[in-house]
Design a protein around this nucleic acid. Structure first.
Lengths: 244, 244
DNA sequence: ACCTGAACACCGTTCAAGT
DNA sequence: ACCTGAACACCGTTCAAGT
């Protein structure tokens, strides 16, 4: 999913005049992700994606089974992006807390890099029913569980941690991505200063009074504190498990 | 959004032979929600929804602005369903912990009643950018914040609680809904016992060993304990705020 | 007043035909 | 070997016409 020379040419100046750049699945997936990033999922069409790649839509079907499968590949690409992150470790080398902290921040970086595509990680059905977004690849879960077991987690605690950790990530990152993605409906183009739906605010005095505060962005602090809270609870659970 | 006589007639025996049941927005929205509940969002089409109501698709446009708007109305219907729940209180009458606990369980009931429609609550853009799913209506947030303030929460703590509470609900309920919704892709019809994607499991020994455990459903306990943990942290935060 | 029929622009996808 | 053109079935949506 790395930008190769072919993409560089296309990105630089439209499609190459005569030099035929061959289509590949990776190029298609990368283009689809880029498309969603700046036009939203609703705008992604096989025909428009073809345009973007200088090709008829029908040419895509030689490299990708169809639109649905393409979206799954986009999810795979984002999941793979987390694994490439040098700050995310394959196994715990400085204790499990450091391991989980790096992982959490790595996932968060990807979510904020692709706020409009990230929800796909949640909405696409996973490979197996017990895989949970956003850590929804077998490789991820294997690395996650093995890492914890190396650090002395027993079976039950490892699995419970996987579940608690994914729940935590999903809640925070989906909301944070929504803030940044700002899926502005095509109707909400408030180019003029009309401030829609503000009128009704008079009926909600408390909301109205706290409006400024509600708009403040404390997501970094909240993520950090919530993560620390989770790690703290896990530490307790670990000691309890050891005491049994 | 309550089933009225008109729906009862239709539900009982197909469309009424001659007695014209007038279309209303409520009937359309209820039918759309029911459709998503048992066919998934992808299957919902204006034309098919018209069929289900014994009407041409074009007739729907007299009562609903369009498909996108209809989906927003479906979300509103689910949000309203939470407010009708008799176990969910409008204001805290037995302390804020009881207030939040009832609210949490009420939202959970709706999520589990509509596992395939619930994700819409997250994916549709809210009325205002500072409204957060799943408590994404002005009425909800007004009741929520006012209730907490009656219980002595200051402004900052009320808003922080709103944010923490929504994050908690979203993470848990989206994952739990996904478990129950089982968005089985049209291709995944494993009517024969082929067990797809199980072959690769040999490369993931830890996942393989913990497979049984990963499939166990502990969502009730997790929801309960996580909620209790949240309330506990809030209690601490309250005391800290009071000490300042 | 409320619904229908026909039409338009746009989809995903298939397949024979081009180069 | 790889892409294109034409075609099919299905969408959302508009609007004049029916009752």
């Amino acid at each position: 999913m790395v930008l190769d020379d072919a993409d560089a040419v296309v990105a630089a100046g439209g499609e190459p005049p005569s030099a035929r750049v061959p289509l590949t699945q990776d190029r298609i997936v990368a283009a689809a992700l880029a498309f969603i990033d700046d036009a939203g999922l609703a705008g992604l069409t096989m025909r428009r994606l073809g345009d973007r790649l200088g090709v008829e839509a029908m040419a895509l079907y030689r490299h990708v089974p169809g639109r649905e499968a393409l979206l799954d590949l986009v999810v795979d690409a984002m999941v793979a992006e987390m694994r490439q992150d040098p700050d995310v470790l394959d196994e715990p080398t400085n204790g499990w807390q450091d391991f989980l902290q790096r992982l959490a921040h790595g996932v968060r970086r990807v979510a904020l890099k692709h706020p409009r595509a990230f929800p796909l990680v949640t909405s696409r059905p996973p490979e197996a029913p017990w895989l949970r977004p956003p850590l929804r690849s077998l490789e991820w879960v294997e690395a996650f569980l093995t890492g914890l077991q190396e650090e002395g987690f027993d079976d039950a605690t490892s699995v419970a941690t996987y579940r608690a950790f994914t729940t935590f990530l999903l809640g925070h990152l989906l909301l944070e991505a929504a803030d940044h993605g700002a899926e502005i409906g095509p109707l909400d183009t408030l180019e003029d200063g009309e401030e829609p739906s503000r009128g009704g605010l008079q009926d909600y005095p408390t909301v109205r009074r706290l409006r400024e505060r509600l708009s403040e962005d404390h997501s970094v602090v909240e993520f950090e504190e919530s993560l620390e809270g989770l790690l703290g609870r896990l530490t307790l659970a670990l000691h309890e498990a050891a005491a049994d």
